[in-house]
Computed example of a mutant assay.
Amino acid sequence: MGTKLLTLFILFSFTLQAQDMAREDYFSQKIGKHIKKFTQESQRAYADNNLERAEFLFDSLINNVVNGSYLDNFKVKKLSGKKSELNDFKKPVFLITYASWCVPGVGEIPALNDLVAEHHDEIDFVVLFWDSKDKVKKATKEYHKKINVMYVDEKENTNNHVVKTMKHSLGFPTSFYIDSNKRILDVQRGVLHAYNESYDTSFNMNYDSFLNGVATLKSLSPNTNLNPVATKIP
């Protein structure tokens, strides 16, 4: 009996080690090797007003370093006060990082709400704020009830390496498209448009951007039961 238990323990330990080896390319590790050079070159590009170069650097970092890595598990708070972690979500995850002082476009939240209403059965939508609980509550009053709103108050989470890496490396608002195995499929920055842009234009720009993220999750997710994305009718 003792020999059988020992054998099972060894096999179980070997399986866990094999899983760790298979998923050793974590986001924090991979981006940590490149973020210093990326930040320096990006700052130089913005200082030279070379927006094309800055965009190229971001896309190169995402395509050559971030995509395909696994997002480290992290623990944050819900508005209810309860703690939650990334691994609690079993569906593909549409994760948006945000801050209350980032003023959304007039059509941004309605566009997101429409997609959440249509796809929440297949995708977990998460908005992670870098802010205090009170500010996050105020900023998310119009969000769809199926959006998982979470926050990181850095005064209380100074030791959370993963979330600090996410914030300080790629900025915000930024969308992460993560499959059910927590592998990053793609990362996109938020839509930028003029502050006084019309509602219709803002809605359509944001809807199309969010829809691309949903399509990425559905087409590249290992879960083949996800329904394809329907094209929006103008």
Rank of each mutant, 00 (worst) to 15 (best):
G2Q: 09
T3K: 10
T3P: 00
K4M: 07
L6K: 12
I10L: 14
L11A: 13
F12L: 15
F14Y: 14
T15Q: 11
L16K: 05
Q17F: 15
M21Y: 14
R23P: 02
D25A: 15
S28M: 07
Q29G: 08
K30V: 10
I31Y: 04
I31K: 04
I35K: 05
I35A: 01
K37V: 15
Q40Y: 08
Q40G: 03
Q40R: 14
Q43I: 08
R44E: 15
Y46I: 15
D48V: 02
D48P: 00
N49F: 14
N50K: 06
L51C: 05
A54T: 01
F56Q: 13
S60P: 04
L61Y: 01
L61Q: 04
N67F: 01
Y70Q: 14
D72V: 00
D72C: 02
F74Y: 06
K75D: 11
K77L: 13
S80C: 12
G81A: 08
G81F: 08
E85N: 14
E85A: 12
L86S: 03
N87F: 13
F89W: 08
F89H: 07
F94A: 03
I96F: 03
I96D: 06
T97E: 06
W101K: 03
W101F: 14
P104I: 01
P104N: 01
P104V: 00
G107K: 00
G107F: 00
E108L: 10
N113P: 00
L115N: 00
L115M: 03
V116L: 04
E118P: 08
H119T: 07
H119W: 13
H120L: 04
D121C: 08
D124E: 11
F125A: 02
F125H: 03
V126D: 07
S132N: 08
S132I: 10
S132G: 08
K133H: 13
K133V: 03
D134C: 05
V136P: 08
K137E: 14
K137N: 13
T140R: 09
E142T: 09
E142C: 00
Y143M: 05
Y143L: 08
H144T: 06
I147T: 06
N148T: 05
M150K: 09
D153C: 02
E154A: 09
E154W: 12
K155V: 09
K155G: 15
E156M: 06
N157C: 05
T158G: 12
V162Y: 06
T165F: 03
T165I: 05
H168E: 10
S169L: 00
L170P: 00
S175W: 07
S175I: 14
F176P: 01
F176Y: 15
F176D: 01
I178A: 10
D179I: 00
N181G: 08
N181R: 11
N181Y: 12
K182D: 05
K182Q: 11
I184M: 07
L185T: 02
V187C: 06
V187E: 02
R189Q: 13
G190F: 06
G190N: 07
H193V: 00
Y195I: 14
D200Y: 14
F203S: 05
F203M: 04
N204I: 07
Y207V: 00
D208S: 14
L211I: 04
L211N: 06
N212F: 09
A215L: 05
L217H: 10
S219D: 10
L220I: 04
S221L: 04
P222F: 03
N225V: 03
N225F: 07
L226S: 12
P234E: 11
P234D: 11
